[in-house]
Design a protein around this nucleic acid. Structure first.
Length: 498
RNA sequence: GGCGCCAUACCCAAGUGGUUAAGGGACGGGUUUGCAAAACCUGUAUGCGGCGGUUCGAAUCCGCCUGGCGCCUCCA
């Protein structure tokens, strides 16, 4: 299936047509987390954005090899372990387990390979040795530094020039911008033997070593948060290209935008304003968060206001609308041809048929244009509205199936490319209710009893009592919905209270 | 000081040279309903931070200005 797929490349600062190195195959490396604390929703955005990238590339027929690493040996981890007296590697192992739980809870596809630093020390030492041999690195008192002056195009990713950097002390380095490949061991720190004595890897080298080991010296796409462009990714490029003598290290560099707080500041562990993924998933289904992230373009900054749940409530309501529209369409029957139904049931039938038929092309055109998920979702909501509009017709339920069939196929595309609508409507609604009730501190049995009472009152045409019960439920944030086939209820959204 | 990015309605957010400026929320009116809710219909930017310029034509390109953010130190 040949198609034009376009992608913004940080390296060239342009949107480019994507062509993988090897026909039909894509190698993708994503900088995962440094595991010394739980992931917050800023990490969640990167996780979710690249999950969408992997899903969509696969949906488009590419065989994607997806590598996402753990940095489990690092200054921050050592510092965190020192505070609790825990062994640094035990601490990082603990947070790796928690990260995996979060990833599963978010509904992320599993990486093909999930390497970590502590099991790649040999590859790292080999790479550092090569850099020393080739004259790109030098050792000083057990620490090995990369020499930025040894690479003429150092700074090509971030546009930085070595002499323009605002730098710290030169210390024992030749140039203030030189960075550590291997750090000599200090007492009490985890360390491994090396040609330069006991020590541990510097911050950037692990990604160079692990990406080349699992994807090759030159691979297709390297991803990460925008805040990693410099110095992390810049330094990865320098190390990899100098060690291997090949370039580019990665042919396309993708960076997701950051979550910003009301002050405009980004969310970050170091800012002390992080909001945990676990806290959020206790209250909302993962797909609501996924929809929230994908409503805006992955490169834009995304506002997050922890003071109100309005954003998540809005996303949850939008998602529920999609699930319900799909449910409505699935419930339709009929054996005629789509043309017959469209001719018999009028403009709304024809419109839902035509929108369904053109959906895939419009949806994919948006997704293939640098992952324009916002536009793809816009197209999806148009389709949902057309379904609901058509569903208002008396004969839609009995005869509508043929004209909504293309729309239902379209929803499958949404699932495969974006990971939305991945569960049954019933399971989704149950999860929403359970999580929202938990957050509100309301018992489900209590609600169900009140609904039984109200149904009886309605059967008796005791409207005053029925309304009184509804008011009582309303006070608990429960909204009652009478339907032809019974009664349903939902949690009123926080934003509706304002 | 250096390198980059952003500014679209009350809010979120697509659109980056040419028909009526997507989509969602909020709010008003309506259909429906015992009353509601949901759903659907309908209204709400002659306007795209400001000022100039290029062009037959600009939210879209160029310049300046204003406001804001990221990176240069750990960060998705």
């Amino acid at each position: 299936m040949p198609h034009d797929f376009r992608l913004y490349n940080t390296l060239t600062r342009k949107v480019e047509t994507f062509a993988p190195l090897h026909e039909g195959k894509v190698g993708l490396y994503l900088c995962g987390n440094t595991v010394y604390s739980d992931a917050h929703i800023g990490h969640g955005r990167a996780m979710m954005v690249f999950d969408m990238v992997v899903r969509h590339l696969r949906a488009r027929g590419w065989d994607v090899r997806f590598v996402r690493n753990f940095t489990d040996v690092d200054d921050k981890i050592i510092a965190a372990a020192a505070e609790t007296g825990e062994d640094p590697l035990a601490l990082s192992a603990r947070f790796i387990d928690r990260y995996r739980e979060d990833a599963a809870a978010l509904g992320l596809v599993e990486p093909t390979v999930e390497p970590k630093v502590s099991t790649h020390i040999d590859a790292i030492i080999d790479m550092v040795s090569k850099l020393v041999e080739r004259g790109h690195a030098y050792e000083n008192e057990g620490t090995v530094w990369f020499s930025v002056e040894s690479k003429a195009d150092y700074g090509k990713l971030s546009g930085q020039k070595v002499d323009e950097l605002r730098s710290a002390d030169v210390g024992s380095k030749r140039n203030a911008a030189d960075f550590a490949l291997w750090k000599g061991a200090k007492p009490g720190e985890p360390s491994w033997d090396s040609p330069w004595g006991p020590g541990r890897p510097g911050w950037h080298i692990e990604c160079s070593a692990m990406s080349s080991k699992h994807l090759g010296e030159v691979f297709d796409i390297h991803g990460g948060g925008l805040d990693l462009v410099f110095p992390h990714h810049e330094n990865e490029i320098a190390q990899s290209e100098c060690a291997h003598g090949t370039e580019p290290m990665a042919r396309y560099w993708m960076h997701n935008g950051l979550l910003t707080m009301p002050s405009g500041q980004k969310m970050g562990k170091s800012k002390g304003n992080a909001f945990g993924i676990r806290d959020l998933l206790a209250q909302y289904p993962a797909e609501a968060l996924r929809l929230y992230y994908l409503q805006s373009h992955y490169r834009s900054p995304l506002p997050w206001d922890p003071a109100t749940g309005a954003q998540m409530d809005e996303s949850l309501a939008m998602l529920a609308r999609l699930y319900e529209a799909r449910e409505v369409a699935e419930a339709m029957g009929g054996e005629e041809s789509a043309e017959e139904v469209a001719a018999a049931l009028g403009d709304d039938a024809r419109r839902v048929l035509e929108l369904g038929q053109s959906f895939e092309e419009r949806f994919l055109a948006a997704m293939d244009d640098d992952f324009n998920t916002a536009q793809a979702l816009g197209v999806t909501f148009e389709l949902a509205r057309a379904i609901n509009r058509f569903a208002n017709h008396k004969k839609a339920k009995k005869r509508g199936a043929p004209v909504v069939a293309p729309a239902l196929k379209g929803f499958q595309q949404l699932t495969s490319s974006m990971g939305l609508l991945g569960m049954s409507t019933q399971a989704f609604l149950d999860e929403v209710k359970a999580k929202r009730l938990q957050a509100l501190g309301v018992e489900r049995s209590e609600i169900e009893q009140l609904l039984v009472d109200r149904t009886q009152a309605r059967a008796d045409k005791d409207w005053a009592r029925a309304d009184a019960i509804r008011d009582e439920l309303e006070a608990k944030s429960i909204v009652v919905m009478d339907r032809a086939d019974g009664v349903d209820w939902k949690i009123r959204l926080v934003s509706a209270e304002a």
